[in-house]
């Protein structure tokens, strides 16, 4: 039996999803953790614009029909009173999931990214 519950403290914060076609990979296959991705702007017309490497993407801010709950698996949550030999069993059957946030909106970038061609002539 696994529980899912809202966190005891703090209001859910504004979490969002950026939906991209395809995948983000690093050139050379480096580990992505901690790496810079790109700049996200909004135009004055409200169009989200994402610049990643040599690509510019324009998208749309849209509410989700069915919001997402972001669940965090909390392993090893067990009552303090439980006995040593029972604890391994408890770990199996009693994983707690906590809801970190509810995502109600996303930025959808579904058009093909446009390449950015730097102005080479200028530097010649």
């Amino acid at each position: 039996m696994i529980f899912v519950k809202l966190p005891d403290e703090g209001k859910e914060s504004q979490w969002g999803i950026i939906e991209l076609q395809g995948d983000l990979v690093s050139q050379g296959g480096n580990d992505l953790h901690g790496q810079f991705i790109g700049d996200l702007h909004y135009t004055t017309q409200g169009i989200p614009t994402l610049i990643i490497g040599h690509h510019i993407l324009t998208g749309k801010e849209i509410p989700l029909d069915k919001p997402f709950a972001v669940l965090e698996r909390k392993r090893g949550v067990k009552p303090d009173c439980c006995k040593e030999e029972e604890s391994s069993k408890m770990l199996d059957s009693q994983t707690e999931y906590q809801i970190r946030a509810i995502v109600r909106k996303k930025l959808l970038f579904k058009v093909r990214p446009k390449p950015i061609i730097s102005n080479v002539l200028k530097s010649v």
Partner: peptide, 21 residues
């Protein structure tokens, strides 16, 4: 401007799930 980067490696990589409501 929101400067986006990947988070540092953590347990969350494995332990986060999305549940549609």
């Amino acid at each position: 401007t929101q400067v986006l980067s990947f988070a540092e490696q953590s347990d969350l990589d494995e332990n986060l799930l999305l549940l549609e409501l």
